[in-house]
Amino acid sequence: MEQVMPKEMPEKEIIRCHNVNKWFGKLHVLKDVNLSIKKGEVLVILGPSGSGKSTFIRTINGLEDIQQGDIVIDEITLSHDIKHIEAIRKETGMVFQQFNLFPHMTILKNITLAPIWVRKKPKKEAEKEALELLERVGIPEQANKYPGQLSGGQQQRVAIARALAMQPEIMLFDEPTSALDPEMIKEVLDVMKELAKSGMTMLVVTHEMGFAREVADRIVLFDNGEIVETGTPEALFDNPQHDRTKLFLSQIL
């Protein structure tokens, strides 16, 4: 695991998106998206419903393909080549709104599955690391339960642990707290904050403005498939430049 230490930001760009365009049928959902993310950066994506936030974040690990433009992750160019996509998926972890744990496996199996089958780790070692991860997300005692026996907040923390078990360079979060009851949101956000402090590169789609202000290094605002505005939390919240940003913030705050 990375050590918890003050953030230093090497100038290496781990994600580069250049003129990314995507259509669903005739619907143009991503329009000339240009965005680069440095290693260790925490980027929060805001925007109204249907603006293409999920679609964008899902193009990063090839869950959605793009019709125009380039996405380069850690010097690997995303293409239709399944080899490249699989290589990139080993570099990126993803956390979904609906957790998507595997209901037929225990928590421990959920976490050790990919290290054992994809990284070919010995079972003992994978389990030891899984228990450490569960410790890190604060639920070491749940290892032998099934997902259905856990609360939403606990399930989402397991989902984070499952993604971390592959030791990814980048973590993608698509509204990780939107399906949670209010009292469970904090426990998940706390885990994410700890992760951000540890130097993980993170892309987070969220409606949690408090989290965005406190943790984000940079915020981008999506509207209608375009990046409308990019800036530090202070700049974006306190001194928005664009009318659409002002409108969005006025509706949400």
Partner: peptide
């Protein structure tokens, strides 16, 4: 649910692995 396929993909399982480890066990049950 579609989310099961996606989760299997994102942790790096190949499509054969995800079929036999994730999808079929649940489908048969």
């Amino acid at each position: 649910p579609k989310g099961q396929f996606e989760a299997a993909k994102t942790i790096g399982l190949s499509s054969i692995q995800s079929t036999f480890l994730i999808i079929l066990p649940q489908a048969l049950r």
